[in-house]
Structures are given as C-alpha cells and as structure tokens.
Amino acid sequence: MAARGAVRAVRRRIAPAAVVSTPARQAIEALGERLKQIRIGAGLTGVGLAELAGWHSSKVSRFEYGRRTPTEDDLRIWCRCCDATDELPDLLAAVQSIETMYVEWRRSLKAGTRKRQRERVAMEAETRHFRMFETFYIPGLFQTPDYAASVMTSVVELHHLPDDVEQGIKARMERRHLLFTRGHRFHAVICEVALTAGVVPATVHVRQLDQLLGDVTLPNVRFGIIPTTATHHSLPLTGFWILDRRVVQIETLAASLALTQSHEITLYERAFDGLAASAVYGKAARDLISDARAGLG
C-alpha cells in the first residue's frame, strides 16, 4: 500500500510534462522507452497491448512517450500482458525514484542549511561504506569548521538563503563524528587541485590541510589523491558519493540528485574504481598534502 501511495503521489506531481525539471523529464522518458522495449519484446503492437489491458490505445503511447506516468496498477497490467512480471520490481523502483532523484536547492534549503545537514546526518549514520569523489574541494566529512563555513556561506549567498551557517556548521561537525565511530569505512578520492583551489581563504586552507594530514591516517579511512599529471582511468567530471550500494548522491549548482537504480549505482561504481586507480595513497598522498601545505605558507 505504501508503494502504491508513493506512485500515486508521483503521478499527481509530475504528470504535466511542461513543469517537470530536466533530469526528472529524462527519467520519465527513459521509463517510457523501457516500457516500449518490453512491449516490442513481447511481440505486441500498441493497439494490441491496449486491447489486452482494456485501455484506450492512446494510453499506451502516452506512457511510452513520457507524457503520462504509470501507476503501480498500470505497471502490473503492462507486465502481465507482456509476460514480463520479472521486470515489475525495477519498473516500480524507477517510478518511485523519479520523485526523489532531483531536489532543487531553493526548495531543499529554503529553511536554511541546518535542516539539510541534519538530513545527511541521519542518512550517513545508516551507511557502512562511503565512497566519495570530489574535484575542487575537500569532502564534507573531512572539513574543518572554518572550511565548512566558507563553503556554506558561498551557497547561502548564491541562492539568497536564510543565513543559518553557524547552525549548519554544527550539524556538519556531527557528521564528522562518523570518522571516529566503529563500523564505518571511508574511501575518498580527490583531485590534487582540491588541495590548493581558492574556494576558501589561504589561511583557512592551511588549517584544513593540517587536519587532513591526520585524517588520512585513520584506520578506517582510505584517502586517494589524483595527481595533476596522472593518467585518468575515468573522467573526473563532477563529484559524487556512493553510500553502500543504496544511493549515489550528486550535487550540482542547482540541485541534488539521488540515484537509486542498480544499473545507475553500478555505473558510478565503475567510474569510482577508475578514479581510484588514478590516485596515489599512503605516503605519496601525504607528501602531496604536505607540499600543498608548504606552498600556502
């Protein structure tokens, strides 16, 4: 019943194609294409499927072209008529993920940064294996309060949000406690440029690198740095986090994406493995941090 309610909620919110955000629009269209391939694989025309389902023929085309989002019952009927009930779990998961996969920052952060950080605390507390990649800045769990304040202030100013940076920092520091809690493993990969990128003042960066030199030696932390001159085995296009094998989190300038389908997670796992293969670890990584620290004065 809960799944049915979630699907109905998605249908109410995203049925009008004109108001759907681009990533969600793409997900709806991908779902429609998947339904189409299932129908074709069953040797059915659109009209033939509609007759078997007891629908008007236009209903099939609306689903396949992403003009309408199917309900749980619609998906069950589709799979039954196409003798493809094994496809049903993934189809249900695809529909339910559309609602949560794209959250605009202006909605997520309208009450300030603290709520967002508190939500991350709850999600990360349940995570046992963290894999994180960042290009231009230090991952949140490893940030000092001053570094986090600089980053959050930039976000607040960009999106004209309520200024609750102080409360947001406290919540972020709660997240950092996981580094010292048994039962959690962390594998982080960053590009070397993140060690010196001017996203925060130089004095803040110096203290951040001092702390990072200690963090990378923690027994549950594997910290890799991709040297600027390294051969890249995977393109470092944007940062992302993989929490266990449950979700991939991606933060863009406008929104946060949460990808939950197994093929999406597998794709990002391959990308992470490629990035990790380009990185150096242990003493070589600490040397890069020390060199960057020395260069900042």
Score class of each variant (00 low, 15 high):
Thr22Asn: 02
Gly54Val: 02
Arg128Gln: 15
Glu33Lys: 04
Thr69Ala: 12
Met132Cys: 09
Phe130Met: 14
Gly295Tyr: 13
Arg182Pro: 11
Arg131Lys: 14
Leu109Val: 07
Glu33Asp: 07
Met132Asn: 13
Ile289Gly: 01
Ala84Gln: 08
Arg245Asn: 06
His232Pro: 07
Glu166Ala: 04
Asp90Leu: 06
Val247Leu: 08
Thr217Trp: 05
Ala30Ile: 00
Met101Gly: 01
Trp105His: 14
Arg270Ala: 04
Ala30Val: 00
Gly183Asp: 06
Ser278Gly: 15
Val7Thr: 03
Gly54Asn: 09
Ala255Met: 01
Ala188Asn: 10
Thr203Ser: 12
Arg131Ser: 14
Gly140Tyr: 04
Arg62Leu: 00
Ala284Met: 13
Thr229Tyr: 03
Gly224Val: 05
His233Glu: 09
Leu296Asn: 09
Arg34Trp: 07
Val200Arg: 08
Leu212Asp: 04
Ile289Glu: 12
Val47Trp: 13
Ala94Ile: 03
Met123Ala: 15
Cys81Glu: 13
Val121Tyr: 11
Val19Gly: 02
Leu35Met: 09
Ala271Tyr: 02
His233Ser: 07
Ala171Ser: 13
Ala122Asn: 12
His184Trp: 01
Ala197Arg: 15
Val204Ser: 14
Lys110Asp: 12
Leu213Thr: 04
Glu64Ala: 05
Gly239Ser: 07
Val7Asp: 07
Gly239Lys: 00
Cys81Phe: 05
Gly214Cys: 05
Ala197Met: 15
Ala148Glu: 05
Ser61Ile: 00
Gly282Asp: 13
Tyr147Glu: 14
Gly198Cys: 11
Glu157Arg: 09
Gln37Trp: 12
Arg207Tyr: 02
Gly295Glu: 11
Arg67Ile: 00
Pro201Ser: 12
Arg131Met: 11
Arg222Ser: 09
Val199Gly: 15
Gly239Asn: 01
Ser150Arg: 02
Thr135Arg: 06
Lys110His: 02
Thr196Val: 15
Arg76Thr: 12
